[in-house]
Design a protein around this nucleic acid. Structure first.
Lengths: 159, 159
DNA sequence: CCAATCTTCATGCGTTTGCATCTACCTTAA
DNA sequence: TTAAGGTAGATGCAAACGCATGAAGATTGG
């Protein structure tokens, strides 16, 4: 692989990281979160995106948190009546997670306010074309992140 | 502001978040970090980017961590001999942070290995053009994140 | 059919984090 | 000059986190 292509890749990644940290700090500072931490909101949001119940390990793929930490975060949300945990009838090990009505309500409230701030920040910085580019790029990067080291190594062995 | 433009902005942001979480998980799983956590590495890397010493609050802008948490993280790195803390002669409140030789060495080692993984993942997912787009977009978003709510409100009041 | 292995989630425990607060220093203005 | 307010960083403490491990159900190979 070309040396400069690798360098460009690292510069692009660093740029993404900087943007992420910068905007996350700004969003965290907004007085819209109520009693929720951003991580808790992230979980409520992820659950709200799916209609059916989600398994804990499926949730774990979307959230940047260790399995035990996520397990306890969900436990706290369940204690607060925002998430419902039920045994999975198809897998005795599994837990099916779903928002309660209160949880859905809360996600809508906070999510609405948060979406306004996201739109404010992003539309102020980017053109429509850039937003479309970012969405496409993010999708490709996320797909790449899913590739396991095993898959990668197998592929490399072939090359 | 147009309804769909706001929606596109939120979709683009969510795409960035998903890519970030996905790749961070992948990078965290790599066996290249030695005794460093990714956050500790992030601090070493940020210090390595600047030749002169950095103030703690300047470091804080780049790192997604509260001021007390960063203060203690730096304290731990100093205890381990990777970072040097010195009083700022120009500001009695301040601390000037710099890598020690050991810290610089460590950053180089881990950073070299990490850069390989970043290049592997990003070049596999994106074209050269997309990498350039991502870098430009990230730069613009980061600049936007720096804008304070006060500045924004003042600006909005004018509009 | 069943032993071995894997997967999913929970729990014990030491470490790290965030919030609130404190101290020390700097800046501003009267 | 000095009092009032602002800023940089450290510290007490409870909450949350990650790692290692455990328990229980699923899966696989002989």
């Amino acid at each position: 692989m070309s040396r400069s292509r690798s360098r460009r890749a690292n510069e692009a990644w660093e740029s993404l990281l900087t943007a992420h940290a910068s905007l996350m700090k700004r969003f965290a500072a907004e007085p819209i979160w109520g009693e929720l931490s951003m991580r808790e909101y992230d979980v409520l949001y992820t659950l709200s995106k799916h209609d059916g119940p989600l398994r804990l390990f499926e949730l774990g793929r979307a959230v940047l948190l260790s399995q035990p930490a996520l397990s306890r975060l969900v436990e706290r949300l369940a204690d607060r009546g925002l998430v419902e945990r039920a045994a999975d009838p198809e897998d005795g090990r599994g837990v099916r997670l779903a928002l309660t009505e209160a949880g859905r309500e809360r996600q809508r409230q906070v999510g609405g306010r948060h979406a306004v701030e996201v739109a404010r920040a992003v539309t102020a910085a980017l053109t429509d074309e850039e937003m479309a580019q970012l969405e496409a790029i993010g999708r490709k990067l996320a797909a790449q992140g899913t590739a396991t080291p095993t898959q990668r190594n197998r592929q490399e062995a072939v090359l």
